[in-house]
Design a protein around this nucleic acid. Structure first.
Ligand SMILES: [Mn+2]
Ligand SMILES: [Mn+2]
Ligand SMILES: [Zn+2]
Ligand SMILES: [Zn+2]
Lengths: 137, 137
DNA sequence: AACTAATTAGTAATAACTCCTAAATAAGAG
DNA sequence: CTCTTATTTAGGAGTTATTACTAATTAGTT
């Protein structure tokens, strides 16, 4: 996928995935898809409120859920909190339990799906390594 | 660790980890530690209620949190739900998003902590592979 | 047996998320 | 361009998991 997304490209992407290109969704996609990043629904809602004062949390939840169903973003949980990830490549994470820093890490050692699961259809997975980051110890 | 735990052994284990050996905690430990298993706080509470009718959810939450702090059990999240795991060896999981089946899988391909994180002190991590199990497709 | 800090049950509070509904609107048809 | 309609939205209500608080109880020590 390209690094830069025009409004038309985002609009087309949404339509191709069965979603109407509303201003709210365009804004959510710009926030999430333009950069490979991690966002909680609430973080995203607060960011969008600045330029889009009337957007409701519910709209953010719904749109994130639809984007995930389309495979355009991924969802996982850290400390019980949903994290949406616009990096859809298979990768793992490290998480600092002190300052809550969450980073991507490579998966050189671990990209293979498990051996005993040939009969499962595995769709996605990520590991979260928990610990303490350099700044926090 | 041994396969069979006597009351005295569990009591000692709790005391060694700074916890008093109350009947409630003994019951929780028997339910969780005797077998390598996955439990949500609510599942555990319902099981304990059968033989221990007045135990409160809060006690279960507190005890699980303390057992986790002591490293006797691990916690991770699936679909936003806390799962406590008495298998403390490093391992991954597969999860069926249809029937909610959750199984351990080996980590032959992925036990190494990530290369770019030498300065982090990594304590634990698990991956959850999401998909559909053989019975559900 | 007495003491005391840890633990408990119960209740209240919180946070994240889902459900519901009426009004607004994007996209397609004419 | 206008009309039509199914989708989407905002907002509020409801739900569920979890945490906070508190007064009474109790495990382990002296
Ligand atoms: Mn990521
Ligand atoms: Mn496990
Ligand atoms: Zn940190
Ligand atoms: Zn299944």
């Amino acid at each position: 996928m390209s690094e830069e997304w025009s409004d038309t490209e985002i609009s087309t992407l949404l339509n191709d995935n069965g979603m109407r290109a509303t201003p709210q969704r365009m804004a959510i996609c710009k926030e999430l898809l333009l950069k490979k990043c991690h966002r909680t629904p609430n973080e995203l809602h607060e960011e969008l409120c600045q330029r889009f004062p009337t957007i409701s949390p519910n709209t953010v939840y719904l749109t994130l859920s639809q984007l995930e169903s389309s495979g355009l973003i991924r969802r996982f949980y850290v400390d019980g909190q949903a994290i949406y990830d616009s990096n859809t490549a298979t990768h793992d994470h490290i998480y600092c339990r002190v300052c809550k820093l969450l980073l991507d890490v490579g998966t050189e050692n671990s990209i293979h799906t498990p051996k005993c699961t040939e009969e499962w259809s595995i769709e996605w997975g990520t590991r979260v390594w928990s610990g303490v980051c350099p700044k926090c110890h």
